[in-house]
């Protein structure tokens, strides 16, 4: 009994839960202020892969800036393990939309950047870097510069650069955007495998429904601007997942339909730009097409 309790506490400490509570965020001042996030609340549960999906330009990236600590909310709170987030930290690593590998450093130096910046240029870090290079399949590209790598390789190098710091939470902002379809699917499987190995807390933002359903344990569906949480769906497709298995899964298709309906409504709002006439027209038009 004592053993179980101990395990539970250990798990509790290991847990890295991010709680977003009624967050508001606007940009600009006075009459030019634009509200991007309005009364947004959700939880990134520990040791789960939470995917956030929403219409493009809906303020998902703003939420990432807030969670990463690059910016602070106007009101509301964001906490990690019950402590408020006040700035960027290596416990929450962000993979950006566009590759943020330093073009002036080789793959290896990029991966070692975190440890070196913190003065941990040790044998252990170097060994871990070599291990990660092999793990992401880039050992032959160790001394190449980022521009000499393909898009998929760059993303993997970036994953390795983040993983070497053993972050409690990995935040990924549309990391596979811009890759061609084949590389994208390979990256999904690759990334899902990485996640399934250690089940760290991951927060993944995307606009791609297939990507979202394939990867997610929990799916957050966001509203159009100003952003808040529209729905939360638990994706109960068993792991490990493969592209074929998910494509064949009827459960996945059910979820997809549900998600599409919700997203369609939100996208429509954004498309019609809030105009009642345009919304009615679109509504009528989509019914006609059906």
């Amino acid at each position: 009994m004592a053993g179980v309790a101990e395990q539970a506490t250990a798990r509790e400490q290991d847990a890295s839960e991010i709680v977003v509570t009624s967050v508001f965020k606007s940009y600009g001042a006075g009459p030019f202020a634009k509200e991007v996030v309005r009364d947004c609340s959700f939880t990134i549960e520990s040791n789960k892969l939470t995917v956030m999906i929403g219409p493009s330009g809906c303020g998902k990236s703003t939420l990432i800036q807030l969670i990463a600590g690059f910016e602070l909310p106007d009101s509301g709170s964001i906490t990690m393990n019950a402590a408020p987030i006040t700035g960027p930290g290596k416990d929450r690593l962000v993979l950006f939309q566009e590759s943020a590998l330093f073009p002036w450093m080789t793959t290896y130096d990029n991966i070692m950047y975190g440890p070196r910046a913190r003065g941990e240029d040790t044998k252990e870090s170097a060994d871990l870097a070599e291990f990660l290079l092999t793990k992401v399949g880039l050992e032959a590209f160790r001394d190449k510069y980022p521009t000499q790598l393909s898009g998929g390789m760059q993303r993997r190098a970036e994953l390795a650069r983040a993983m070497i710091n053993k972050p409690e939470v990995m935040i990924l902002d549309e990391p596979f955007r811009g890759l061609d379809h084949m590389s994208k699917e390979l990256m999904w499987e690759y990334y899902a495998k990485l996640y399934e190995e250690d089940r760290n807390t991951n927060f993944f933002v995307t606009t791609d429904i297939d990507e979202a359903i394939f990867l997610a344990d929990r799916l957050l569906i966001m509203t159009n601007l100003p952003t808040s949480t529209r729905a939360v769906i638990e994706i109960d497709i068993p792991r490990p997942r493969t592209i074929e298995a998910v494509a064949d899964s009827s459960r996945a298709n059910e979820i997809k339909k549900e998600v599409m309906t919700l997203l369609h409504e939100e996208a429509m709002k954004s498309f019609s730009g809030g105009s009642k006439a345009a919304a009615d027209f679109l509504d009528a038009y989509s019914k006609r097409v059906d």
Binding site: F102, R118, N165
Partner: peptide, 28 residues
């Protein structure tokens, strides 16, 4: 690109390190 300095500070670089490792080579 701001994402370079953000990536660096995310990875634990101080403001001075961002200047040395991102600003100088990036402006080169």
């Amino acid at each position: 690109d701001e994402s370079y300095s953000r990536a660096a500070s995310c990875l634990g670089a101080s403001r001075w390190q961002v200047f040395k490792h991102v600003v100088i080579p990036g402006a080169m």
